[in-house]
Write a protein that binds this DNA or RNA. Structure first.
Lengths: 355, 355
DNA sequence: CTGAAAGCGCTTACAG
DNA sequence: CTGAAAGCGCTTACAG
């Protein structure tokens, strides 16, 4: 209990007043109070007045959980967002964009981090469903979301963000990962690099596989040989990314450029490059923008996703579905943008490598 | 509606099954199903078995909003966090820490950004209260929270984070803003600076005033004259902070050091220093750490708050109150930490200023 | 324009 | 160990 000072008015310490209490004080039926509280028309002005006075006097606040229980549509005006990690700037910006659109619709947001844990995803989906969230926005950690079929009622829209669904048909808003990665690597090739390392997250993650595919496609398109020694998967955080670099840089024929396929990986790689004083000699392009990328020296060239646009688009799909849109599931692809800042334009060292 | 494939089992397209449906299928009373679902002891094993079979067959999921409506304690197992801006790394980390503790208690989190808007704060407090959140965690945008007395029922704990309450008695978890600012400025004085600018947020914000007080105290303690020309308040974002610098640097007697009293302000100031190529000549210490502060050149010296510690402590207060702790409201002060990285150790230029 | 009765999906408070 | 009845705070579906 917080030790609040005694209340100046209204109920004090007693149970919260209910519709019934307001009705009794105003001398009308519960139904009339309900009409006034919900702004329904067709109530005599005098009764409206006396209900409003009673509401003020009692500090009455409607109980939305009770009203949603009885309402036919069962809406709770709450939507759940299940994202990768709310502390990561990508998820945080996405979350903020979702909040802004939800706020326009007077809808609140539940939020949860999945941390790449399929179990956590299932647990949270169930928790939000039990609380009757009106819709789910999901950046899945599972590789197959077939379980949603029996876990979530059909009336509850699900919109996937960042990662496309698998085993379940639903709207999705994703970045063009293959194309973005291709552009990043093509950019490096354009600056003369032929030894380009791939630094990626766990291959269980679809977007990680897509970015790897884009990397391979870019090499192939420009006739740059693919060398598995330059590929590192499974870099789950900045620390592991930094730790993976020494081995790469000590190869007989080390990479002259790095493609870091996720923001944490980019930061980890740069931390190592700076520690080894290689930041002006080894080129790097990252996938995902991050705050302050422009303030590092050199500035960090990235393929930027637009988490705000992704979030807004996802929220718009949610509210379209809630408004009754029953067209087939669609996937919205948000394009990426190459942001040139310096690190990606470091040229390959001149050498005998190219005939 | 998402266009899910036909369900393999359970209800399909029909309404969700209820306790009553399970009871009918299992051939027991609703009360028995309730007992099994809630893990209450004292049900014959055979009945447990047949209830569990019916639950699986129907894909029954209890409706938590209904159960919380009827329960005596009325708990919804949801807590609301009203923070400054979920996209700001400080709020995002704080939010994540809250989530982690809540998750340990099987409690979900509602989240909202206040954007320094008192109206938005009141609207969201009401929205969360209407949804019967079990507790509120609040980084207030209002200057007086007296309205909480009649807006939030006494049984609902409120814990303030980052900013202390005013006009309302409640637990709070805050950083030591005065002391942190004092240490930052003392550190700059220790490197010979006597012309130290203060770059602060709107003075309507208590923490902004506290940090300004710490700045003044440090000057006073070391006998450095206070010059109002070196003080800029009202810097609401990085852009305004950057835009405020030219005027300062063009003073007849410009500052040799900056104290940036918030992370966005620090970033804005650095953006200007880099653009003007002053980053190696003008010292800066920021309040609040931020990601990549160590990777800038020079590294950015900051007085770091610990948003994770603040969040954990706040969540712990919440769950202590929910568990029945009725001791007087307390304020937990989380100490700050000076993190030396280079920008704060740039010495004052030698000059005739000091006798 | 207004209200009495029933019911949303659960748990409580009993009685057996 | 089990269940029938009542009720949480609202809205629905009526009837007047």
């Amino acid at each position: 209990m917080t030790t609040a000072p005694p209340r100046a008015r209204g109920y004090r310490g007693a149970r919260r007043p209910t519709l019934k209490d307001v009705a009794a004080l105003a001398g009308v039926s519960m139904k009339t109070v309900s009409r006034v509280v919900n702004g329904e028309p067709g109530v005599a002005p005098a009764k409206v007045e006396s209900v409003e006075r009673a509401v003020r006097q009692l500090d009455y606040r409607p109980n939305l959980t009770a009203s949603s229980l009885r309402r036919l549509d069962g809406r709770t005006a709450a939507v759940a967002a299940l994202l990768e990690d709310l502390a990561n700037p990508f998820s945080a910006e996405l979350h903020r964009a979702l909040e802004d659109v939800a706020h326009e619709h007077d809808v609140l947001l539940f939020a949860g981090s999945l941390d790449e844990s399929p179990e956590r995803e299932k647990r949270l989906v169930r928790a939000f469903t039990s609380r009757r969230a009106d819709a789910l926005i999901l950046a899945p950690a599972t590789s197959d979301q077939g379980y949603l079929t029996y876990e979530v009622p059909e009336g509850t829209p699900i919109v996937f963000v960042d990662r496309a669904p698998s085993g379940y048909e639903a709207d999705a808003v994703v970045a063009d990962n293959v194309d973005g990665a291709r552009r990043a690597v093509t950019h490096l090739i354009g600056h003369g690099h032929r030894r380009i390392a791939f630094l990626g997250d766990r291959t269980a993650i679809q977007t990680a596989r897509d970015r790897f595919a884009g990397y391979q496609q870019a090499l192939h398109a420009r006739g740059v040989p693919f060398d598995p020694d330059l590929v590192v998967h499974g870099l789950e955080d900045a620390g592991r990314a930094a730790a993976a670099l020494p081995r790469l840089m000590e190869l007989r024929d080390p990479p002259s450029a790095l493609f870091a396929a996720q923001n944490e990986i980019t930061v980890g790689a740069i931390r190592h490059l700076q520690a080894a004083e290689l930041q002006d000699r080894v080129a790097i392009v990252g996938f995902d923008d991050f705050p302050l990328a422009d303030l590092l020296r050199p500035g960090v060239t990235v393929v930027a996703q637009d988490p705000t646009a992704i979030g807004r688009a996802a929220a718009e799909r949610v509210f379209a579905r809630l408004a009754g849109d029953s067209t087939p599931a669609r996937t919205v692809v948000i394009p990426t943008r190459l942001v040139v800042r310096g690190s990606g334009e470091i040229p390959a060292p001149a050498g005998p490598r190219r005939p």
